[in-house]
Design a protein around this nucleic acid. Structure first.
Lengths: 217, 217
DNA sequence: TACGGTCTATGACCTACATCACACAGTCGG
DNA sequence: CCGACTGTGTGATGTAGGTCATAGACCGTA
């Protein structure tokens, strides 16, 4: 039920919006921009991230096909609070804020869906705030890996092991740690036989085990 | 304009809701609760906070008269993501989620306001995430003090110096640091002649100076 | 006015992590 | 096949800030 409603928002944007294609790494918008379009991911993946003064990035979400993003600026008209970039070749649908709002006003049930999406993001942000303050870098690394593995699962990963296509630098940026700390955490997981690492990707051999590992201590 | 719209949401809740009075420290709801009421602060102040595994708290917002809160659970029906407690004697209006949603569906422009409120919270959460990763405890302490002083200003503080009625433990919990770190930061500010400290309150002698202090380095 | 509770202040550690530094392994273009 | 580049793996070292310990100030209350 929930997903039906949510996908409807995506569908509306997909139906009314203009298709756009991006190559890997292309930026859809950048933190501070005064653009107010709203997007839905149609094909591929989009990463939404904050840039810290140090220049490092901090992942706030990965958008998969059907997920909408960029609503914040569309809703309140303020500058972009985050940047968005394509992970691999990606197709999105782009809709102007004015049109988006018109549709929402016409269809209050879509408004509920949008609010729920915002709520989910807010809950997630709070979780991360707590995680950052209470978990070690190792635990955060493991948690993020489990999360990414689950995401792969959701999107057609069928094997028992999950290949997460990501560099250690990205992973580090995303959990708010250094590349080195992340590498050390991965080394720990590797020694425990939970993951394998190679250039550009991490293979989670035992998702449950990894989850256990970072839950217990 | 923005505030007019926002206050309307508050007014609706205040008009339709049931008045409730709380004493200092009383809990309105607790993280994990399955209640779904939405609130507006009518008189006094409410602090909304997360509880970390360590038992420490983390402030996510202070609600002043006119501010609504508790919308998340009302909107998505999920358990409370945070706890809310009265700071000093407080009056709020409480409205059932179902009624709240009915009104929103009837009045789409209120929906926009709610979305904007959620957006603002999300932006704020992101800011804190970045702050936590890039600023020292001292800087965060100072920033929070400046913010609290401004809040006092907004609410009738008229003098050049601002008395922030808060214990160091609370301040520490709110910025995600220990009481000791916060005390040391305050000692630094005190030596610089920017603040004075006494039992249960901090007097900001020079808001601009403090702001400068934590902005520059 | 003596006592328990709460708040402030500060010193002495000690760990988690960032920083720096370097070596090595894929991958790509010429 | 050979640099150049990008990614990985790990040691050495520094440090911010957490933890622990202690002491004094302030406040309510019996």
């Amino acid at each position: 039920m929930d997903t039906v409603v949510r996908s409807t928002v995506g569908h509306v944007i997909a139906d009314l919006g203009r298709r756009r294609t991006y190559a890997s790494g292309d930026l859809l918008f950048v933190e501070g921009d005064h653009s107010h379009n709203v997007y839905v991911c149609v094909e591929g993946r989009v990463r939404v991230f904050l840039t810290m003064p140090s220049g490092r990035e901090l992942l706030v979400g990965i958008k998969l096909p059907g997920d909408e993003f960029g609503e914040l600026s569309a809703l309140d008209g303020r500058p972009r609070s985050a940047s968005a970039a394509a992970i691999g070749p990606t197709v999105v649908a782009e809709l102007r804020a004015e049109r988006f709002l018109e549709v929402l006003i016409d269809e209050p049930h879509l408004f509920v869906a949008v609010c729920q999406s915002l709520s989910a993001q807010l809950r997630r942000a709070n979780d991360r705030l707590v995680a950052r303050n209470s978990n070690s870098a190792t635990v955060r690394t493991g948690r993020m890996l489990v999360e990414l593995a689950s995401m792969m699962m959701r999107h057609g990963g069928s094997s028992v092991t999950y290949e997460v296509p990501i560099t250690q630098s990205d992973l580090a940026d995303w959990i708010g740690a250094t590349r080195e700390s992340t590498a050390r955490a991965l080394a720990e997981f590797r020694r425990a036989g939970l993951v394998e690492t190679c250039r550009g990707r991490i293979v989670v051999l035992d998702v449950l085990g990894l989850n256990e590992f970072v839950s217990a201590g």
